[in-house]
């Protein structure tokens, strides 16, 4: 029997009504009585599916509609039109049976009470999610070991660093072992070591409980470390849904060739072989169309005094940038 998707989204649309006001005191005064509204389409018909256990990157520039989509999927926003099913539930009905299996982590906001140790907030969550004592202890022990929380749980949350707080936050969101996890910028403002820790941890949770994860992040390293598949949206529309690796083939049909040459004269000559990406003295990086790469490389090696040459895919950041610029043009 075929597996049912955990997340199913079809033609999801969200239009906000935004109160519009001109600058100036007179206009502010008028707007007290007569308000002008503008319709803003945040999400314009997005469709996709996630299978159980998938970890998918959800990419797009600021204002692309990522958070709006995640909020609809977690039942915080009612869509203007379209359908969504998560674990078979319609999210915006906010049925307890659904909310029990879901977690939505927002990197810039905290569900933990500020003045008390994280552990006390965990106990409240235990009561809210009705987690049996044995399971609670087991999960907590796992989380403490994985995230190295031992020393943090007893301190009031306000005394923790941003990264420490994020770890406690993640643990709070996972105590009830959610089947579906929406992570909205989980590594925002956290240092590199901690970012790594959080990534490993998300991967581990996914592996252990076969949880489905949809992740947005501005750090491409999060995405490349965790996601095989990415969904890209821009201006509320779906641009790409597929393999992360194939993304570069589709949107950046070129390779980068790094060259180190013996002298400046040959460096100058090398620049005639393709589009120059960057240059530092005798080190030149060229951008070549995929299909021509091998023949050009052969010619470079034959005609120029090359010390070193490497061929690579462009950095994922550049590909994404390319994707969004392509759409603007």
């Amino acid at each position: 029997m075929a597996e049912q998707p955990h997340v199913l989204v079809r033609d999801l649309v969200k239009t906000y009504r935004v109160h519009e006001r001109e600058a100036g005191a007179g206009a502010s005064f008028r707007s007290l009585f007569k308000r002008k509204y503008k319709e803003v389409e945040a999400v314009k018909g997005v469709s996709f599916q996630l299978m159980p256990g998938e970890v998918v990157g959800f990419l797009g520039p600021n204002g692309a509609g990522k958070t709006t989509t995640l909020k609809m999927l977690s039942g915080l926003l009612y869509p203007t039109s379209g359908e969504a099913r998560v674990l078979g539930f319609e999210p915006w009905k906010r049925e307890a049976a659904y909310l029990r299996q879901l977690s939505y982590v927002l990197g810039n906001r905290s569900q933990l009470a500020w003045d008390i140790p994280a552990m006390d907030s965990y106990l409240v969550n235990q009561a809210i999610y009705e987690i049996p004592e044995k399971q609670f202890r087991e999960t907590l022990d796992e989380l403490v070991a994985l995230l190295d929380l031992e020393k943090l749980l007893k301190k009031p949350v306000r005394g923790l660093s941003l990264g420490e707080r994020m770890k406690c936050e993640l643990a709070a969101s996972l105590l009830h072992r959610p089947q579906v996890l929406f992570l909205d910028e989980p590594t925002l403002g956290v240092d590199v070591t901690m970012q790594n820790r959080i990534r490993q941890f998300v991967a581990e949770h996914n592996r252990r409980y076969n949880a489905t994860v949809l992740l947005t992040s501005h750090y491409m390293a999060d995405v490349t470390a965790l996601c095989k598949r990415v969904i890209v949206i821009h201006h509320g529309k779906l641009l790409y849904d597929g393999d992360l690796a194939a993304l570069s083939e589709k949107f950046a049909p070129f390779k980068q060739v790094r060259l180190d040459l013996q002298d400046m004269a040959s460096a100058e000559r090398a620049k005639e072989f393709g589009e120059v990406h960057s240059q530092e003295g005798t080190k030149v990086t060229l951008r070549l169309p995929r299909e021509k790469t091998s023949s050009v490389v052969a010619r470079l090696l034959a005609e120029l005094p090359v010390i070193d040459l490497t061929v690579e895919d462009p950095a994922i950041e550049e590909v994404i940038d390319q994707v969004f610029q392509g759409v603007e043009a």
């Binding site: 909020k71 977690s74 039942g75 915080l76 906010r94 307890a96 049976a97 659904y98 909310l99 029990r100 879901l102 977690s103 939505y104 927002l106 906001r109 905290s110 569900q111 809210i128 999610y129």
Partner: peptide, 13 residues
């Protein structure tokens, strides 16, 4: 004001 009411709505309560 701060948008943290979302966390209340996310709970099965």
């Amino acid at each position: 004001r701060e948008g943290t009411l979302d966390f209340v709505l996310l709970k099965p309560v």
